Simulated scan of single mutants.
Amino acid sequence: MTTDSHDWFNTAVQALADPQGQRVWSIIVSFLGDMAQGEGAGISSAALTRVITPLGIKPEAIRVALHRLRKDGWTDSERRGRGSVHFLTPHGRAQSAEVTPRIYMRRTSAPQDWHMMIAGTPEGLELLDALADSHRTTMIRVNRQTLLAPGEAAAATPDLLVLNAEIATVPAWLKEELFPAALRKSCAALDAALLPLGAAPPLDPLRRACLRTLIVHRWRRIVLRHPNLSASFQPADWRGEACRAKVFALLDAMPLPSLLELEQAEALPLPEEAADLQA
């Protein structure tokens, strides 16, 4: 690697640092979901620290975050030699696998057919609540009593009025509900941060892991906060598709390192002033 590659890496880390700050436990989930999602895949405390600390996160914050993830059932750990190895639990793997297709989807593939479910009773409202909660990335909560779902209605649903629907127009108020101002601002900020970086130079495995974690984390926080919808549902100032193209251009230039490479890597020089992130 050249000095120019080091400079590009440092510039990219600074540009992609979220101005709103990040939860360390969430960054660890992004790393594990990207590079250690398979059953039995794990990373030592030392190697995880080498990946995460260049992002401005202190080792003590990593330890606190790992404790929280174990407590919440997302990760587990076991002693190996003088250290510990951390890995996703079956629950953590299942949660990661559920959202992986959305995170790594390279283009919007929204359905053309829809059906609408309308509740008129307390029992129907409870059913809508359950459906909306379990299908957050595919179903649209139009209002308290109405849910828009992809595909044709498969069968009659008790307590709900179910109609096959054709989307003729999408009003501005619904676009605003689906893509609120805070989400649009976050997406525009990531798009603007990615724009000046250009093509990634060749990077060593550890720097690739650092940047992949940061990029996937920022993108995950955007793409999982709205349903997978075509352009007709998107506000005019939504930068999602432009941002998606930049995200995958960089990820393609930084192939996944192996966990063994990360275990064998030497620690990178740390920034002079590490940012204090909440665990």
Results as ranks from 00 to 15, higher is better:
H226P: 00
R93S: 05
R82D: 11
Q14A: 15
L16E: 03
R144L: 13
W8D: 02
R244M: 06
R102L: 10
P150L: 04
A97K: 13
A274M: 15
E78G: 09
W74D: 09
R23A: 13
K71N: 11
A253C: 05
L32F: 15
I27K: 07
T121I: 02
W74T: 02
P235I: 01
K185V: 09
L66M: 10
E126S: 12
P235D: 06
L251P: 06
A245L: 10
G151H: 04
S77Y: 07
S134Q: 09
H115Q: 05
L260F: 07
I52G: 03
G92E: 05
Q264C: 09
M254W: 12
D72V: 05
L32A: 14
A267S: 10
P235Q: 08
A154S: 11
G56C: 08
L148C: 05
F179V: 01
M35H: 11
G21R: 03
G151I: 04
H135F: 08
A172Q: 10
T11N: 15
V99A: 08
L161S: 13
W25P: 04
L127N: 02
L163F: 11
L277C: 03
V247T: 02
P271C: 07
H91D: 09
L88R: 04
K185H: 12
R23S: 13
G38Q: 14
L270T: 01
L256P: 00
P271T: 06
D204K: 07
H226L: 01
H135L: 10
E266L: 11
A275H: 07
A275L: 09
L195I: 00
D237K: 02
A245G: 03
A192Y: 00
S186C: 04
S230M: 01
R244K: 06
R80T: 10
D18T: 02
A94L: 11
A209S: 06
A132D: 08
L178K: 03
A130T: 08
A61K: 09
F179Q: 00
T138F: 00
V99F: 09
G42R: 08
P196V: 06
L69Y: 04
N10H: 13
R144K: 12
L195P: 00
M105E: 15
A94T: 10
Q234I: 01
V99I: 15
A274S: 14
E39V: 10
E272M: 08
H67Y: 07
R68H: 10
T100P: 00
L48M: 13
I62W: 02
C243K: 02
R80C: 06
D191Q: 11
A199D: 15
A189E: 12
V216F: 07
D276K: 11
Q145V: 00
L161A: 14
A155K: 13
R70H: 08
L206N: 04
P255E: 03
D133S: 13
V223T: 10
S134M: 06
V29W: 02
R239P: 10
L125M: 12
P180F: 05
S77N: 09
V29L: 15
K71Q: 13
H135A: 11
E266T: 14
R107E: 14
Q37S: 12
P122L: 04
I52P: 00
E78V: 10
E98L: 14
S186A: 15
A209V: 01
Q264M: 13
V142N: 04
R50K: 15
L270F: 03
K185C: 02
L174Q: 09
R239W: 05
D72A: 13
